[in-house]
Design a binder for these strands. Structure first.
Lengths: 145, 145
DNA sequence: CATATTTAAGACAACCAAGTCCGAAATAGC
DNA sequence: GCTATTTCGGACTTGGTTGTCTTAAATATG
């Protein structure tokens, strides 16, 4: 697994919010977890974290729920990964060395580096909104049939 | 983390054996775990698994230990990963979907696929012996300073 | 203001990977 | 054959991630 379960749910949830709750409309926890096929209370925890850090917004009380602020900038995929899984979650040494670098590389360093550089660039430039658009168009999906 | 701790230790251990215990000479558990900086009893478990599946060889008793059969074919990196972490450990869906494919992709499927294909090819063609050579030449390392 | 609805927060439980321990089996050397 | 050494195998412990539950806080509505 590239990312933790928490991170997978976070990515799916924010993508779904971008489609269904941009601006005025809101979605509550049960609607979200149903849409992305995730355990409801666990999803609640993750949504709270995302909200606490300002990646998504929330409103308590009747008619409340979670939503994406219309005026907010597009959300880069890397922001969610850094928040949930920690920085450099995906570009650590393949053999687990703490200090693996060009000067003192592990044997698979060079090969892995070329991938993680590409991957990092992808995650830093791609936005959740772009993914949401693919879903809206029916070109991609968040759950299995 | 790309691979499990078990898999990291397995890769390091087999690389080390390729350097120090090819043919007649053997290394025991404490020598190996010291060389690759891993917990001794946990490393023992992993070496047993590798031995049971014929990736490395072992001899019990005084002067015994683990070694790489000189006559055995070079060990492809993928063999160790498949054994320890299970098949397709590294090319599962980035969002955790069970059935994610071209026909019904998750939004990050296409981008991830292009990496996992490259990575898979690398792991299927690179051998432990090649990595061992890099270590022997002083161009790569298995532990931090 | 009372009530229903919804998120917030923290404690708790279940699960799995990581790591330990111990007795059994094999074997080399005396 | 006895002893020391070493791997083998299984049971056990620990720690972190995943997932649940319960109570509190906020707020919309009548």
């Amino acid at each position: 697994m590239m990312f933790s379960k928490s991170c997978e749910y976070a990515l799916k949830a924010v993508i779904h919010l971008c489609i269904k709750a941009k601006g005025e409309s809101r979605l509550n926890i049960s609607e979200i977890s149903r849409a992305i096929d995730s355990p409801e209370p666990f999803t609640a925890k993750i949504l709270q974290t995302l909200s606490r850090h300002g990646i998504i917004s929330s409103i308590k009380g009747p008619g409340g729920g979670f939503y994406i602020d219309k005026k907010a900038a597009p959300i880069r995929v890397i922001e969610i990964i850094d928040l949930i899984d920690g920085k450099h979650a995906f570009d650590r040494c393949g053999l687990g060395l703490k200090d693996c670098n060009e000067d003192r590389p592990c044997p698979i360093h060079k090969e892995f580096k070329s991938y993680s550089v590409q991957l990092k660039h992808l995650l830093e430039t791609k936005t959740i909104q772009e993914f949401a658009k693919e879903i809206s168009r029916g070109n991609a999906f968040l759950i299995n049939t």
